[in-house]
Design a protein around this nucleic acid. Structure first.
Lengths: 236, 236
DNA sequence: TTGACACTTCGATACAGACCGAATTGTGCG
DNA sequence: CGCACAATTCGGTCTGTATCGAAGTGTCAA
């Protein structure tokens, strides 16, 4: 008699992969969107290089991460945005449980303010961006996922985003991603990534090394608020 | 020196809880929304009563399930909709990986068509309901979560939903929940639950025992399509 | 009260896998 | 070529925990 197997997706398999503290640390570190080397990840996870290598092998096999050899380094990154979303939802739930691993520190406020979620902007600024695009008619819900309106296309082009390039690549341009701190959607997809990259290029903001925090300059924040007003109509 | 603890929510803790096959089976069974007894869950998980009891104790401690004593039975249910959402996202990812535990059977088509997600309608019919409410102006996005318009309130009242009762209870009325088969949002929250219950009371549909499938009668489906048209404007 | 049943606790076993250090392979630099 | 460094493989230890059966607690119904 075959062992009683339940139908449905094999949720235990991947949950177990995430369920080990060392691997969870690795995945959390990769949520920054940056590709990290095996040694860096070993440091992040707090384990030796050999154990980290073992963990990375399992994560690869489970398709949670992908690798890219570069010389004698091997860079690892999350396998895709869907992985990032799983982690975000998990984080949101865990945070809601109040089960933070350390007491809330000064970093937490900054994380809620603006942080990188895999490769796009999350936190209060991420929500502001998302809401503003809707409020100004630059984006609308196309049933399932959001979609840029024609006006929206012009808007992001004006911001310096190479929109044609985004469309040409096969990745979905607009996706929503649930924010774990505020439980509200923000913009993911290749457009979300491109916008964050653009903000960095224009010097509005930069990622704080070794964290997921995004720090806006005061001038950058002014420009950002101008581009993505929260209360449209109050000015013109 | 304190062990290097990473900041952020303790994602490993709950992922490990879900990561055990027996516990994953238990949680999956509870996704039907029904409260099940410890022995039933032991059967679902394919383990002895004593091990199931141990697992349920851990799930309780981790706040993933809640219990309700009833005579000599002890009923277990998912602790909340947030737990259900975590599981849905996990299932969606696992399904996307193609890592189904059994080969896809005839049940899968029915599951995609209409199924219960925790306690509300998901699958193609769930998406239809969600989209139709928006298209007809009965629901709109209030920034974060959807909200019924005044017309929408009248509409659900006409369907026989005790809307005042929903509002009085402290639970959120409207929430969205991401569908794992179609990756599109559908309606959760107490309204989502109330609507499904209403469909069952009116005999439009019923849950297939021991599965998450919701089976519509042919007449029930006709009524459902009438109440929640997909292409509004084609008729009136 | 006694018996049937639901569930939990206990004790013991067994297996998986997390971990490290040392040795190995492979790459780049001088 | 040979050194330095990144990463993996290997052998071995050890803790954690999933698992069961049997015994214990509690609840309902005769």
């Amino acid at each position: 008699m075959v062992k009683a197997m339940k139908h449905g997706p094999d949720i235990a398999r991947i949950a177990a992969l995430i369920g080990d503290p060392a691997r969870a640390n690795i995945l959390t570190a990769l949520m920054s969107g940056k590709a990290l080397t095996a040694s860096e990840l070993a440091g992040e996870a707090g384990v030796s290089a050999s154990t980290a290598s073992s963990h990375l092998g399992r994560l690869l096999e489970g398709r949670l991460v992908k690798e890219a050899r570069q010389g004698r380094h091997k860079y690892f990154a999350l396998a895709g945005e869907d992985v990032a979303q799983v982690l975000e939802v998990l984080m949101g739930f865990a945070a809601g449980q109040g089960h933070l691993r350390t007491r809330t520190g000064p970093k937490d406020a900054q994380l809620r303010e603006a942080r990188v979620c895999y490769n796009h902007l999350a936190g209060a600024r991420g929500i502001q961006l998302y809401d503003s695009l809707f409020a100004r008619g630059f984006m609308m819900l196309d049933g399932d996922d959001p979609r840029l309106t024609e006006a929206g296309e012009g808007f992001v082009r004006d911001l310096g985003v190479d929109f044609d390039h985004l469309v040409k690549s096969r990745a979905p341009v607009c996706l929503t991603c649930l924010d774990w701190s505020a439980r509200r959607p923000h913009l993911a997809g290749s457009l979300g990534r491109a916008l964050l990259k653009r903000f960095e290029m224009m010097g509005w903001a930069h990622r704080v090394r070794d964290t997921r925090i995004i720090s806006f300059t005061s001038e950058g924040l002014r420009q950002f608020n101008m581009a993505f007003p929260v209360n449209p109509g109050s000015r013109g």
